[in-house]
Design a binder for these strands. Sequence first.
DNA 1: ATTATTGTTGATAAACTAACTCTAGATTAT
DNA 2: ATAATCTAGAGTTAGTTTATCAACAATAAT
Lengths: 144, 144
Amino acid sequence: MKLSKKSEYGLRALVELTLAHEKTTLQRRDIADRQHIPLEFLEQILLTLKRAGLVSSRRGVNGGYDLIKQPNEITLGQVIRILDGPLAPIGCVSKTAYQKCSDCPYANKTRCPVQQVMGTVRDAIAGILDHYSLADFAAGHPKG
Amino acid sequence: MKLSKKSEYGLRALVELTLAHEKTTLQRRDIADRQHIPLEFLEQILLTLKRAGLVSSRRGVNGGYDLIKQPNEITLGQVIRILDGPLAPIGCVSKTAYQKCSDCPYANKTRCPVQQVMGTVRDAIAGILDHYSLADFAAGHPKG
DNA sequence: ATTATTGTTGATAAACTAACTCTAGATTAT
DNA sequence: ATAATCTAGAGTTAGTTTATCAACAATAAT
């Protein structure tokens, strides 16, 4: 049930970008320094977030990164799904990336005990992370 | 945020042992067949559960495994912690296996946004899994 | 134009983990 | 004895995580 370093770094980077949003852009080095993130790894993460349409970037002198959307329009659930994949503990209860479990012995899937509990767990996790915006996150309080 | 195959198989094996409990013992082959679990991998899992004091075993002809405790005294949280480690998504919010995060830039840990949210997530997961017994689990309904 | 600065991209790789597989041995019932 | 069964741990394979590096492309200032 682990959160990867990638997601952790990604979230921490987005805190910095949220704090800077509409004031200034940040260069990868700024972000890496402030959040103690390995520079080259951060690069990859920012690139992934860029491809996913969360941040914009500009090259060259005075370049840097910026959020594209408003901080209250991005949820932690979105970010973690981009960087780590589905929130669900097991494929067969994922709502964004369902996958049938190949070796499940239960013909009637609603009877599978694992699926039942893990469905509950998934809903609990998603219930938190999909209602928690970057704005909440950077402000450090539990709800907007 | 994944549940490992090890834990999944472990839980499924425990369903069988719960159903058989106080009626008969089960051999690894029975469990493996009914739950489609690779036999040799299952062995390892059962051994871990034995060392942790959840199941007993008897060797030789007519040997097999049995639950030691009553099914309503074992929670899924316990099982998953044994097989997969802490439920917490990140070490610094684990209550059973706390670990300081080495690279956290926040001197005052209560101010770390990641820690805040992930603490909430941990509580949600543990709130479900630590109140869900094997008896509930095998019966296939959400609460005892 | 030139140059320094910054982001972009893809290749590479060490370290780790997951998910098995295998082999040899110990115990027990018959 | 011997066949069935668990015990223990080493070995294997494939994939993931966590980076690191080098070459390239765009931009701004001079």
